[in-house]
């Protein structure tokens, strides 16, 4: 069953910029979707539409096969199910207190105080926020702010979490930690959509890859298929992941078998190479 579906949505800003043009996309429940595209290709506008912040001028959005109801009540319902973690935490965190910040969405949903305290504490523990919970948000590092921004959304227990470039401008340690948390989200039945510029990450993580170009869906498909198509990527100003490049070269040179499934990370590729070298030395 598709959990979220857009049908030919078009969004034009007041100044005439056509940010989205006839975008039709289906997100299946539990599917990991990566959105790729150059800056200004319409990803962020698309996200704001999925959450009901922007209302497309044409086309419609279906949540669980029901068209989105743009009344106050309908929007609250949609936003409680679809959460967005914004790219710049400074545009999302409105309170100087970490605790207040995280509780905001939950209180808006009308949770009782007891329930809210319990859930805020749980999410802080899960996302390793406890060591700095008493610090004001303006004294947190970029990575810590990102953790809080993610907690803001997860505490509301949405069915879909949208992340706009979650690991941009983070140090390797925080990137790894955040990725580790993100990888576990689908296990909890949360459908995750990520916009990213990190090709290697998208290849390893995503089930489905969608390429955006000039406000249109330029291509979509399985991660392996999209990334093997170098020509397609070039036309969206993107480059192939390093794993794929190396894999194609090695196949072309006959070092490894071209019929092997496309590797999604270096570990798999390494295994292919060692296997191939071993079989040669044995043979």
């Amino acid at each position: 069953m598709s959990i979220l579906k857009t049908e030919n949505i078009t969004y034009v800003y007041e100044d005439g910029t056509k940010a989205l043009n006839n975008v039709s996309l289906t997100i299946e429940k539990g599917e990991k979707t990566a959105l790729l595209g150059a800056n200004g290709s319409g990803k962020s506008t698309f996200f704001l539409c999925l959450n009901g912040i922007l209302k497309p001028q044409r086309g419609r959005i279906l949540f669980k096969d029901q068209p989105v109801d743009y009344s106050r009540k309908g929007l609250l319902e949609l936003r409680s199910k679809v959460g967005i973690v914004f790219q710049d935490p400074d545009n999302q965190l409105f309170s100087a207190s970490v605790y207040q910040e995280i509780s905001f969405g939950l209180m808006n949903l009308g949770a009782s105080e007891q329930e809210a305290v319990k859930r805020v504490e749980a999410v802080m523990e899960e996302l390793e926020i406890l060591p700095f919970r008493h610090k004001p948000t303006h004294l947190l590092s970029g990575g810590q702010k990102k953790q809080v921004a993610l907690a803001d959304i997860l505490v509301m227990e949405p069915e879909i979490v949208i992340l706009d470039e979650p690991v941009s401008a983070l140090d390797p340690k925080h990137t790894e930690m955040l990725n580790d948390k993100l990888i576990r989200l689908p296990d909890k039945g949360i459908t995750v959509i990520i916009a990213t510029h990190d090709m290697d990450y998208a290849l390893e993580w995503a089930d489905k890859v969608v390429l955006f170009r000039n406000g249109e869906v330029f291509a979509e498909g399985r991660a392996e298929d999209i990334f093997m198509n170098g020509e397609l990527l070039k036309r969206t100003n993107l480059i192939q992941p390093d794993v794929i490049k190396l894999f194609s070269d090695l196949c072309a040179q006959g070092i490894i078998d071209g019929n092997l499934p496309v590797p999604r990370n270096f570990k798999t590729l390494e295994k292919y190479i060692t296997d191939s070298v071993r079989s040669r030395s044995n043979g």
């Binding site: 967005i84 509780s103 905001f104 969405g105 808006n108």
Partner: peptide
Amino acid sequence: MESRCYNGKILVL
């Protein structure tokens, strides 16, 4: 804030 169901009043713990 709207995307987190803000409804005109800042409710926090």
